[in-house]
Design a protein around this nucleic acid. Structure first.
Lengths: 214, 214, 214, 214
DNA sequence: ACGCACGGGACTGCCCGTTATT
DNA sequence: AATAACGGGCAGTCCCGTGCGT
């Protein structure tokens, strides 16, 4: 399975330093703060992060941080919010009529896996959302949306004869998503061993034959 | 699949108060502290737990805690250590020669699942071990031992003709363990939905047919 | 007792927007800042006021404030200074030769009461002057000037036979001013009950008969 | 008018240092904290007080303070609560049947005045209660209870023929209490001048003749 | 074996002041 | 005349550890 690297939120803008208008300066600083904080939150969690260290590592001070995020919670909400939005955006990418629905399901796992491997916002947002209850964000919890999306796709697959008739979409979706989060956890715990993508390969090698119609 | 409840670490000893020797008193207090702390650590993590609150909830004070565990880390190590030991004990339970190796693998997941669902030490130890690096415990990481054990069992299964020949034990073991941890996470995040056992059922329903020889 | 509303510092200048010269613009901004700050200081005191909030409520930012008042103290001094000046102006309004001096004393309390009830600068200045030691303003403390003025008026009243001979002007002045500040405090604490003017009425009803010659 | 010094809350226990049981030690420390904090709050108000300085002046640290008062608010509530209780206690001291009710009213002002002059809890509690809304203490606001008590006494005085018939108890009570708080304020602002007791003397000299029956 | 009182340090929240910019 | 962005310091909160006493 081939997955292109999602190049969204990480250009770091090393291109044109001379053109820095003063009004764009702040936006960049805010961006740097969010990214650095996300990396810190990703390993450390809410309580494990010292905001002063984060900001000092960017050659800024608490004052600058306070200007953009008066509160640690505000910063966290920004990160979680972006994570949710990014996830939703990946899920909502429309599929062409012809695509095999089962393949789309598989493809989604790789796209999400890519996010988790390369986007600090995603890793941080995921962890933060698990630690605290930020459900008041009024946004759909990513893992739930993902499961629902997968369930819908599998139903279509069945209708279109792309999946065996005796398979239950909802249960399969649950297994897929559960596996993903376990594999993600394992790949973080043992970075030296097989990474997330490899684990996904094993999983689908095992599972796909049982799903496709003979 | 039927699994008996593992009745190990939760007697709470409400039986015989008159026979309590002076030295047994302390041991009980220590036990109460460990359990209460574990429950707190299970949801809250290392930094999220206030040791004072823990002992106060037991009608004790810091003094009692300090007597048994001079340091927060000592307490955590005790919990993590027990978690590791308990896990090892579950894994090491010998299998009779006749048992189907594949069934043992399946059975193990339910036994471990039972631990995670009912033993606070297990939940706390798992979380604490993930948060901090207690590799200096010189103990085998449970998930790794589990995977190795599963791999060995699957190899035997293949030799005994209890598993299809074209399956790779190591990869399957990885998928199984990864799925387990993901399912465990999901069942904690969404306690209202399907619980861990149900998720295991779905998983094996899907996977077992592909593994057993025709 | 009838008192005309002292119309000093609250025109709000909504009259002629077209004629606003560029230089008048700044003056208006400065004025708005002073008034808004005064209202904030009146309830909140020196430390209880967040200057950023003040300017933000005027759709301005710290920069605008900084332009006029580089320091919180400068702003406070402006307010206190205005309070002192306004108070002095009320006290210094000349009395016609014929007016009954006792009546002037009474009248003064109502005029000052009017200030405290309707002018934020007065309330803020009073509180700020009490909280901090701005004796370096080299201005006469309002309450002291008021007492002295009252004492002088009462001496004249005695000479002119408008007050009983056995009354001591200084002591009466002290009682009058003390009562006023107490009544002012009470009317702020319990706004639902009798207001300052009503309290003054009660006071003079009680006191005047003892002061006037039979 | 002669008023005995109310010797309630200020022994400071300089008597027997050797007998200090360990359990009494803490109570004394807590007491020292409350008194020192009260003195600081009395001049400085809520925001003007640095708890660290307070505690350092007692050769203690933040840790000790936190043990007794985890929060600045808790400390303030303790002080305000004591103020309210002390005040109520002074008001509730029963009067013998024979005492002239008007004299009791007068006497009360001196007793309260004594509190304000010598008890830091009273001064601090008064100021803190004015600055913040601690009405959730469910205790009667001292000044209100005082006014009500005075009103009741004056009604009795009228019934017993100890006050002129054409005086309105409620209005007089209002004037008395208002004057008191004004005089208290003035005596704090200008400590070099006439103190609170002297001001009360002037007040009653002026007022009593108009109240007593001829 | 356990309670009480206390030391001490780390981190967030808060907010005033200030500069570069237009 | 006014803004956006940022520096910097301090107070309050939180909590772990610890000695003394019994």
């Amino acid at each position: 399975v081939i997955v292109e690297r999602s190049q969204g939120p990480r250009q770091e803008t090393e291109a044109a330093p001379p053109v820095t208008t003063r009004e764009a300066r702040g936006a960049r600083t805010k961006e740097r703060i969010v990214v650095a904080a996300a990396e810190a939150f990703a390993d450390g969690g809410y309580n494990g992060v010292n905001l002063n260290e984060v900001v000092l590592s960017l050659d800024l001070t608490k004052g600058a941080l306070y200007y953009f995020f008066p509160t640690k919670d505000k910063l966290v909400r920004e990160i979680v919010g972006r994570h949710f939005a990014l996830f939703a955006q990946v899920l909502d990418r429309p599929a062409s009529k012809d695509d095999n629905r089962l393949d789309i399901v598989v493809h989604l796992t790789y796209r999400v896996g890519d996010l988790y491997q390369h986007d600090p916002i995603t890793r941080a947002g995921d962890r933060l959302a698990k630690e605290r209850h930020f459900t008041d964000l009024e946004l759909p919890v990513p893992s739930v949306s993902w499961m629902e999306k997968t369930t819908r796709l599998l139903r279509q697959a069945k209708t279109r004869g792309e999946m065996r008739d005796d398979r239950v979409p909802k249960e399969i979706a649950s297994v897929v998503v559960s596996f993903f989060y376990g594999a993600q956890t394992m790949s973080v715990l043992f970075p030296d061993r097989r990474n997330l993508i490899t684990r996904l390969d094993s999983f689908w090698d095992l599972l796909l034959p049982t799903l496709r119609p003979r």
